[in-house]
């Protein structure tokens, strides 16, 4: 039979279907907003994190005392709920008579600064390696995979311990050491996502337009992996806070008298049996912060990339 017989009858010339009055489906941002509003974990976790961050930022104006100001006549005062608690020191004082609430608030500044900066560094390092490796493939990807494997074989705590003991425990050193030891998860995830995206036709379209690799990486690929990066960053932040606390607790992190949450626990250690609040309060703070960040991170994942659930 001649194929003209089966020429579809639909090939008629006419105006494109007029969809002007049809309502648009919601935009991706609107969908995210809807998912976020009904997500309890995100609201609770995110709320707690935002509260702590806000307090940490406002600390210089709202902290009741100077965190370095010693008052040996007011040593080891119980918190407000204790037998000898007073309103003058809500969370009591430490062994040198410094107001514990103020130390905790200033400690939040130090701990959060370190974890935020370290997470930023690791996100930049990891995402750059992952996107470049996944997009270019071949030998470049082989090199990136090699770096990831090397990194995965390094135990972060052990390496940071030895590095800190060599270069000393300043805040800057901590930020860089932790940052360069936690980028692997970013690299693994962004690499696999980029490998999938590389074969999508919108990448080929950008190449056919003559766009440079840099432009494709930054404006085509990066926006598509940004959600994953944010989610990993929120989860890694909790890990980084823990590493910082552990290092400071072991005396290899932030050096006294600068307060940090891990250091507060370390300082309270010698009084642990008769003044337990000295380690319970900072310990509980670290615990709550890590839980809240994890809740918020899980929530962010559900909101930003719901495809990955179940």
């Amino acid at each position: 039979m001649a194929i003209s017989d089966i020429n579809p009858a639909g090939f008629v010339r006419g105006p494109a279907s007029d969809e002007i009055f049809e309502a648009l489906p919601p935009s991706p941002r609107e969908l995210m907003r809807r998912r976020a509003r009904s997500h309890g974990g995100l609201i609770f976790g995110g709320g707690f994190v935002l509260l702590v961050v806000a307090l940490a930022i406002l600390t210089p104006w709202i902290a009741p005392y100077d965190p370095y100001n010693q008052d040996l006549s007011a040593r080891l005062i119980d918190p407000i709920w204790g037998a000898k608690g007073s309103w003058a020191h809500l969370l009591g004082t430490d062994a040198l008579g410094r107001d514990f609430l103020s130390r905790l608030m200033y400690g939040a500044r130090v701990s959060l600064t370190i974890s935020a900066c370290a997470s930023l560094i690791s996100a930049i390092v990891g995402a750059t390696l992952g996107i470049v490796g996944g997009y270019f493939g071949g030998r470049i990807d082989g090199f990136v995979s090699y770096l990831i494997n090397v990194k995965l074989s390094l135990p972060p705590l052990l390496v940071s311990l030895s590095l800190v003991s060599v270069v000393g425990g300043s805040v800057t050193a901590l930020i860089f050491i932790i940052g360069f030891l936690t980028w692997d998860r970013y690299a693994v995830v962004t690499r696999s996502v980029s490998m999938q995206l590389r074969n999508q036709e919108f990448i080929a379209a950008a190449q056919a337009v003559g766009a440079s690799h840099t432009r494709i990486l930054l404006t085509e690929l990066l926006p598509n992996v940004m959600n994953q990066i944010i989610v990993i960053a929120s989860l890694e932040m909790a890990v980084v806070i823990l590493i910082e606390s552990v290092l400071s607790f072991l005396g290899l992190g932030v050096q006294p008298p600068t307060p940090s949450w891990g250091l507060l626990v370390a300082e309270g250690r010698s009084f642990m049996f008769f003044k337990p609040y000295l380690i319970v309060i900072p310990g509980l703070t670290i615990f709550l912060m890590v839980i809240a960040i994890n809740l918020a991170g899980d929530g962010l994942r559900d909101v930003l990339s719901p495809e990955g659930r179940n």
Binding site: P28, Q200, E201, A205, A208, G210, E220, N224, M226
Partner: peptide, 19 residues
Amino acid sequence: LARRIQPIFQDPYSSLNPR
């Protein structure tokens, strides 16, 4: 060359950047 030759791809679901 890109200004002279341009593509239209098969799958309009993967040829447009979703973001």
